[in-house]
């Protein structure tokens, strides 16, 4: 039962990733792309982590998965921030994508 629920969550997370990727490819400028990417990946990652945690063997694995989710999320957010920051700095000098 838990396995089915887990698989469903992972599937849902994957859908978010696909959506984020489509956004990355289709959106016009860097900020929209970042928007699509960070939102979709944040949620997608959380869902997949939750799904995997449901399928995990013991408490130790759940703790590890949580930690992985936490650090990936923090790193992703920081990266998004840095990219946006760099893009905004570069803008006045005539960078238009």
């Amino acid at each position: 039962m838990l396995d089915i629920l887990g698989a469903a969550l992972i599937g849902l997370g994957t859908v978010f990733f696909v959506a984020g990727t489509v956004g990355l490819l289709r959106f016009p400028d860097i900020f929209c792309r970042l928007h699509a990417l960070t939102k979709a990946d944040g949620l997608g990652l959380a869902l997949i982590a939750l799904g995997v945690a449901l399928m995990a063997d013991g408490a130790g694995d759940v703790v590890r998965i949580t930690l992985i989710w936490f650090f990936v999320a923090v790193a992703g957010a920081t990266c998004g921030h840095l990219i946006a920051r760099y893009a905004r700095r570069a803008m006045p000098e005539g960078r238009h994508d």
Partner: peptide, 13 residues
């Protein structure tokens, strides 16, 4: 120069 968010991230990680 990477800013405050980056520094927080570095301190955390």
């Amino acid at each position: 120069v990477l800013g405050a968010v980056w520094e927080g991230f570095a301190r955390l990680t």
